[in-house]
Design a protein around this nucleic acid. Sequence first.
DNA 1: TAGACCCGTCGAACCGGTTCGACCCTCAAC
DNA 2: GTTGAGGGTCGAACCGGTTCGACGGGTCTA
Lengths: 344, 344
Amino acid sequence: MATIGDVARAAGVARSTASYALTGKRAVSDEVRARVRQAAMELGYTPNAGARALATSRSNVIGLLAQFLPDEFAPAMLQYIQGVTDTARDLGYDILLSSDADGRGALKRITDSRMVDGVVLLNVAEQDDRLPVLRDAAQPGALVGFPGDCTGVDVFDLDFEEAGRVMVEHLARLGHRELILVSQPEHVIERGGAYVWRLQNAAVEAAAVNGVVLHTRYGSSSQPQIGRDLHAFLDAHPNATGLLLNNEAAAAALPTVLHERHLTAPGDLSVVGRYSDEFARTFSLPYSSIESAPDRLGRMAVRQLVRRIEGQVPENDPYVVRFVAPELVDRGSTAPPLGDAREP
Amino acid sequence: MATIGDVARAAGVARSTASYALTGKRAVSDEVRARVRQAAMELGYTPNAGARALATSRSNVIGLLAQFLPDEFAPAMLQYIQGVTDTARDLGYDILLSSDADGRGALKRITDSRMVDGVVLLNVAEQDDRLPVLRDAAQPGALVGFPGDCTGVDVFDLDFEEAGRVMVEHLARLGHRELILVSQPEHVIERGGAYVWRLQNAAVEAAAVNGVVLHTRYGSSSQPQIGRDLHAFLDAHPNATGLLLNNEAAAAALPTVLHERHLTAPGDLSVVGRYSDEFARTFSLPYSSIESAPDRLGRMAVRQLVRRIEGQVPENDPYVVRFVAPELVDRGSTAPPLGDAREP
DNA sequence: TAGACCCGTCGAACCGGTTCGACCCTCAAC
DNA sequence: GTTGAGGGTCGAACCGGTTCGACGGGTCTA
């Protein structure tokens, strides 16, 4: 493998000159630049990443800390990853992926060893044990997810509270008076999945304000249990005319459940979910839903991270906490409840 | 950040001695080793990855080249990735993930720059343009998937031909005489997805041998089109008593389709799929299937790759092409056809 | 008692880049 | 004609590890 020394020799210049010619960090005569480029081309020169990292203390690699939990929905996880990798590549960074169950240890290792210039954390919990490590690290970090303490990091998440309000208000406006909200299983909350209760609390509040009865339930995150759960919830609340889903497995299972009960949406039941458009297309889900935009969140996190890495943020730029506004995608699964006599 | 020089000074020894004490590459007195370890601990020393890579020409990183294609099933892709990352971590390697659409360019970049010690390729096509680059590279490579030319790389894949035979023979043995095989869409073949015709050709052959009529069809890889496709195939071949699925979207859509047709499996139709057990559980698919074992394939690829990286393979060890034997997981969706009077 | 050998340690070189300061040369200004 | 500024190039140092050869001192053997 050719080194910059080989290139310099072939071009008849000093190593430093070859470096300047290739990086453009100092002025070089047109003629020398051309010779050096030519030599580099002919020798197939590619700078050694380790050497460059050592000299510049920059690796052009971003760490991505994910956790593949059995109750996280795989398609959504892949969308986060894709948003992050694509954006990183566009900005000239590679991705070091860790799915280590010991996220804390993995984070410490890759930051202390200077393998990465910055880090993106997925699956952020309310009390995330990786955050103290990240704050101690020399590199900046960006989160997808909303922890209890946001100091020292940039935070991006869907506005789950607004999402809860939007869902309830949308159905309330149509005339619904009794709703069921199916959330992720409780152990997701216990693990620190704050987004579950953030959406739920806001929904409860909005229901109270709008004079709507809201039954909150936790459903399993996998089939076939979630199908049985849905049947049980519908059995328990026969007068409910609307269903809110903050649980992707529930959304995937619902078509079959409705079929089995000989119900249609929105004829018998109005349905609003919370999942990504990609997910809706893959599984052909016909339900209106709040777009959860995983790829967009990944993109935003990387963009901000790179701005910090490259020092494009002004001195003392405060850390950002940015919530993506939930957008309701209408797929026609909501309507006024049966027997509702009001004008549209 | 503490360097090995700081550690050496704190322990009162030469840098080289500190290095030997920590890496164990030369004998060091117990007393010095203890002092060095103590100093390293107190200073929170972690070796600089770039410097180590430069000195040893080993990065302890494995490149993972995936391609997130819209017609690849996300859950399966995530399982491959998980098999690779978990195994790599167990063996002491980190993963550099690329999902660049320009796989060729990405591969050249990460190998030439010596960022990685080896490479795992996913989504390998019949004629894969990454393979010439990989063969030129200094680092070894392992593939998940079966290309036309396997020279210079280790290859791991499901034995799709055996899978096709097993599916057909299983149903033939039960007495079925007319079957439909639903494959991935044709553009997957055009892209080089050889596994589609490998399974199909073997199935056709086995059908001929067993005196079975086999209708081969290509279905869409996404909903809702695949649902319509399935209806059309069943309409076109009303006498078919068995359905073979080499198309994950078709498997996911089938429960609804059968419901709509008021059919049950195996009562009215015997069904055999080809997908991972994980996929079956997530989507609660009740169909017997050939286990496609994505995590296992990822694991095998990394294991072999690491053996090559670490030179544990004997001189001139030939490259391996290893097919995982397909295993039929019985979930009770096959039975003798209706009206079959033979003894079991 | 001399020589051979082994163990533990050290200093120096090296991996392959980047970057700093110095130097030379040319050209413009006074 | 001298001085100053600035563009272009070079050599040397540096980043932080690893590794090679040499060396001192102790033990074992002849």
